[in-house]
């Protein structure tokens, strides 16, 4: 059986994440703001997976549908956006985060339903065995993130999955940078302690 290391390496290799620098968004954002549908479609192609992933780690009820909602809002608000590549990413995840909170509130108002923790069909995209490992690994990580407090989880997912800076996370969450640093520190310590006391998870 593959180790988590091997699975992570496989996942990274399949993504090409370690090899390719991300394409510049600025020209696409400019063109999309000028009304070019293909430019917006390309932005969607580049970033919708990241947004869906962020929402999935938060166990949003419908990550794919919410991602569509997020990009619809981005499209409507695009004329008001000003900033660079990282600014766009931060703006996008601010919208995604607020959508996720709305979704969570809506879910809390509804009667509980059976949580679907079965096979995540979106996790894989190729070899059946690799995809099975990817699904297992994703569930494994999601279980670990669930041990964090909501604030800690927000910070870790915004820093790691959304790839935002401490300053951007602080602005998004309406907290001070010191508070964000403290939360990420406590979150990582908690994860480490959890892994120490649950060695079978590793």
């Amino acid at each position: 059986m593959q180790s988590t290391d091997q699975r992570t390496e496989t996942t990274a290799k399949r993504s090409g994440a370690a090899r390719r620098p991300p394409p510049s968004l600025a020209p696409l954002v400019d063109d999309a703001r000028a009304g070019c549908p293909r430019a917006f479609e390309e932005i969607y192609r580049l970033l919708a997976g990241h947004v869906a992933s962020y929402l999935r780690w938060h166990r949003a009820s419908d990550p794919d549908g919410l991602t569509n909602d997020v990009f619809a809002q981005v499209h409507r608000k695009l004329p008001t956006f000003e900033g660079d590549d990282q600014g766009f990413r931060s703006w996008l995840f601010t919208i995604a985060h607020h959508r996720m909170i709305d979704d969570r509130r809506r879910a809390n108002r509804q009667p509980p339903v059976q949580d679907d923790i079965g096979v995540d069909e979106s996790a894989g995209c190729g070899d059946v065995e690799e995809d099975a490992f990817a699904v297992m690994a994703c569930d494994h990580v999601r279980d670990l993130v669930a041990v964090l407090s909501p604030d800690q989880r927000d910070v870790v997912l915004l820093r790691v999955v959304a790839d935002l800076s401490v300053e951007e996370v602080a602005r998004l969450l309406g907290k001070g940078e010191g508070a964000v640093k403290a939360l990420q520190h406590r979150a990582l310590s908690a994860l480490r302690r959890h892994l120490d006391t649950h060695p079978a998870l590793r």
Binding site: S15, G49, A123, V161
Partner: peptide, 25 residues
């Protein structure tokens, strides 16, 4: 172990496919 987790989280976002665009979008 924690590093393994965060590196996996980063890598996994790269393999998450863009969801199909709904007709309204």
């Amino acid at each position: 172990g924690v590093v393994e987790l965060t590196s996996f989280m980063r890598a996994s976002r790269e393999v998450e496919p863009a969801p199909p665009m709904r007709a309204d979008l």
